[in-house]
């Protein structure tokens, strides 16, 4: 159960065909549900726990969970990107509810809500 998508927070990035989380998953595991417009995880067992999808979600709608076999319930790790994009603050909570925060320098590049896929239509590249 590596990442879960909170349906109450996910807005599917509105009309975006390829929302940031879908683009950032290196395993092609996130997809937009054509019926609800929200994001679905294809198969939790294929997740690498790498977190780009969590960090890039503008709604903070994606939460990283350890598989239960690896750790107990209610512990949480929530990344928050600063508006200046040069820091990331990680909010950590253990199973007893103790919290801690880690603020680390980074360089987050701006990410568009949508992006056209190169070469989707045959016409683009026909020679």
């Amino acid at each position: 159960m590596p990442v879960i998508i909170h349906a109450d927070k996910c807005d599917g990035c509105h009309g975006s065909q390829n929302p940031p989380c879908v683009r950032m998953c290196p395993g092609d595991l996130l997809m937009k549900d054509p019926k609800t417009g929200k994001i679905l995880m294809r198969d939790p067992a294929e997740c690498w726990d790498c977190l780009p999808c969590v960090k890039v979600c503008p709604q903070e709608a994606i939460e990283f969970k350890l598989s239960y076999q690896l750790g107990f319930h209610t512990a949480k790790l929530l990344p928050h990107i600063h508006d200046t994009r040069d820091f990331i603050t990680w909010e950590l909570r253990d199973t007893k509810g103790n919290t801690d925060k880690f603020t680390i320098r980074t360089k987050i590049l701006p990410v568009e809500l949508d992006e056209k896929i190169e070469g989707v239509t045959a016409v683009d590249f026909s020679i």
Partner: peptide, 15 residues
């Protein structure tokens, strides 16, 4: 956290 965030959650989830 810069490379392998699940390590930190693992420690928190296993005390």
């Amino acid at each position: 956290l810069d490379m392998y965030p699940s390590m930190v959650l693992y420690w928190a989830a296993n005390e």
